[in-house]
Design a protein around this nucleic acid. Structure first.
Lengths: 139, 139
DNA sequence: GACAAGTACTTGATCAGTCAAATATACTCG
DNA sequence: CGAGTATATTTGACTGATCAAGTACTTGTC
């Protein structure tokens, strides 16, 4: 009773866990940033005008709105992101990278890229692209 | 400053999060089991003699030994797994599926397979196999 | 324009997992 | 054999996330 899709999901989970754990120590050591924090900063950096509402961050990161609230707090205290009110909707707000945040995300991404390249040294660039394509294709 | 490997890792994380969250509700709803619990039970089910030491479980699942200790407790209380002492090493123990556990993992896997197939409906069987191969290849 | 329903976010309680330290046992080598 | 080191597990304190409930605002309908 083997199911190719479910086997793939199990593999996805372990590979993800291994890579995240590895990057966590490398990024954390260099920049005092967790993997999920870097993920959040990258989402901001990649957004048009480097600005997103918490809800959109939640959707991008596949976490809950509640998780976003809690993730943002320490980043805001450290002056890495900033919140401003959303002129279109008073319930919401807009989260932006500060100048310091832009520098940090740049540096941390560089470290992460380097480490990732090492972790994936067994795959060719083509295979990595293929992997990314397949993951994106899922949904 | 784009890095194919790191982009792929970011994608890996979000896709993983989405799938895990989805399966969590489906498996949880039907069998009262979390995704990571099912992962643990599957590791046992797939082990020779359906028996593993906590350390080996930790390695298989890519979590810490500490995490295994805590994951096993509720499963043991529910009679899904059982611990016995390791005759080779008094520091360690052996974790096995109970009869009830074997039934449960079978049923939950069926549910999970079904849900996963739906989640991955946009990929062909060949693409899913390819995805799994690439993930395995990484490390 | 008021009221119902929906959406955006926050908060309290909880959970799964981490790390560091403690404990217990095993292994190695002089 | 015994000392020192290494390994297996557990525990306490903590972190990052969840869910459910609450607040605040917006939207759609009559």
């Amino acid at each position: 009773m083997e199911s190719a899709p479910f086997e793939a999901v199990l593999r996805l989970a372990t590979t993800n866990a291994r890579i995240v754990r590895e990057l966590e120590t490398r990024i954390g050591g260099h920049h005092g940033l967790g993997f999920s924090e870097l993920r959040l900063l990258r989402a901001l950096a990649d957004a048009p005008e480097q600005r997103l509402r918490p809800t959109d961050l939640a959707a991008d990161l596949e976490i809950t709105a509640s998780g976003v609230t809690r993730a943002i707090l320490p980043l805001e205290k450290r002056g890495i992101v900033k919140r401003s009110s959303d002129p279109q909707d008073a319930r919401s707000s807009r989260v932006t990278l500060t100048a310091a945040g832009r520098v940090l995300v740049e540096q941390a991404s560089a470290t992460a890229s380097e480490s990732t390249a090492k972790l994936m040294r067994r795959l060719s660039v083509g295979q990595i692209k293929q992997l990314e394509r397949l993951l994106t294709e899922i949904g």
